[in-house]
Amino acid sequence: MKIIINNSSMQPLYDQITEQIKSGVMQGTLKEGENLPSVRTLAKELRISALTVKKSYDILEQEGFIVTVHGKGSFIAYASQEFMLEEKKKEVEAELESAIRKGRSCGMKDEELTDLFYLILED
């Protein structure tokens, strides 16, 4: 598993790790049941605090992306298709919201945004 962190990013390190693991799960590069590196191993590889990695793993577990078995490690969770579809829908929604904010910030009216949306849908 390859995780790249950007120390100059405004995004917290734990969030960078979390997002990259989520992305790997969503894209299928991280498979169900696959073993993740231990907290200490990943912290050592990335040269960051183990607490940072632990926070990321805790978030991923809370959101249902990984399962941690005491004494055995953390594994990619067996996610249902519904769960994966819902996560993808949330990503699309966030990207649409971002696009609308950008359009409004440059003076586009709702009607223009709607027209543009339907024009893009036709492609």
Rank of each mutant, 00 (worst) to 15 (best):
Gln62Cys: 08
Glu61Val: 13
Phe83Asn: 08
Ser9Ile: 04
Leu46Lys: 03
Gly73Gln: 10
Val39Leu: 01
Lys89Ser: 06
Asp15Leu: 13
Thr29Gly: 13
Glu91Cys: 10
Ile120Lys: 07
Ile120Asp: 09
Ile76Val: 10
Leu46Ile: 02
Ile59Ala: 02
Thr68Cys: 11
Gly24Glu: 06
Ala94Cys: 08
Ile120Asn: 05
Arg104Thr: 06
Ser38Glu: 11
Met1Leu: 03
Arg104Cys: 10
Leu121His: 00
Ile66Trp: 00
Phe83Thr: 07
Arg47Gly: 07
Glu112Val: 03
Leu119Gly: 11
Glu122Thr: 15
Leu51Val: 15
Leu85Gln: 15
Arg40Ser: 14
Ser98Cys: 09
Glu82Trp: 04
Thr29Arg: 11
Leu46Ala: 12
Lys109His: 11
Ser98His: 05
Lys89Trp: 06
Thr29Trp: 11
Lys55Phe: 03
Met84Val: 15
Lys102Gln: 08
Asp15Lys: 15
Leu85Ile: 13
Gly73Asp: 11
Lys109Asp: 10
Thr52Trp: 03
Glu86Trp: 06
Ser38Tyr: 05
Met10Arg: 14
Gly28Trp: 01
Phe65Cys: 12
Cys106Thr: 09
Val67Leu: 14
Leu51Gly: 05
Glu91Ser: 14
Val53Met: 03
Arg104Leu: 13
Arg40Phe: 02
Arg47Cys: 13
Ile5Leu: 01
Lys22Met: 13
Gln81Asp: 15
Val69Trp: 06
Arg40Trp: 08
Ser8Ile: 13
Ala94Glu: 12
Ala79Met: 15
Pro37Phe: 03
Gln81Leu: 14
Leu85Ala: 09
Asp15Gln: 12
Glu86Val: 14
Gly103Asn: 03
Ala77Lys: 13
Ser105Asp: 09
Ala94Met: 01
Val25Ser: 06
Gln20Arg: 02
Gly71Asp: 09
Ser9Thr: 08
Ser9Glu: 15
Leu113Phe: 00
Leu121Met: 14
Glu82Thr: 09
Asn35Gln: 13
Arg40Ile: 04
Ile3Met: 00
Leu60Ser: 11
Ile59Asp: 06
Asp115Ser: 04
Lys109Trp: 01
Lys2His: 13
His70Glu: 07
Met1Gln: 09
Asp110Gln: 07
Glu82Asp: 12
Asp110Cys: 01
Leu116Pro: 04
Gly107Ala: 01
Ile120His: 08
Gln20Phe: 06
Leu46Gly: 02
Asp15Glu: 13
Ile100Asn: 07
Leu30Ser: 11
Ser38Phe: 01
Ile3Glu: 15
Thr52Gln: 00
Lys54Cys: 07
Lys90Met: 14
Asp123Asn: 05
Phe117Cys: 00
Ala77Phe: 04
Cys106Lys: 11
Tyr14Phe: 10
Ser56Met: 05
Ile5Tyr: 01
Met108Lys: 12
Ile17Val: 11
Gln62Lys: 12
Leu113Ala: 01
Ile76Met: 05
Glu63Met: 09
Leu96Gln: 04
Ala77Val: 07
Arg104Glu: 15
Ala79Gln: 12
Leu36Phe: 04
Gln11Cys: 08
Lys55Cys: 05
Asp110Phe: 00
Val53Ser: 00
Ser8Thr: 15
Tyr118Cys: 01
Tyr78Thr: 10
His70Gln: 11
Gly107Tyr: 02
Ser8Asn: 12
Val69Pro: 08
Tyr14Thr: 08
Ile4Arg: 04
Gln62Ile: 06
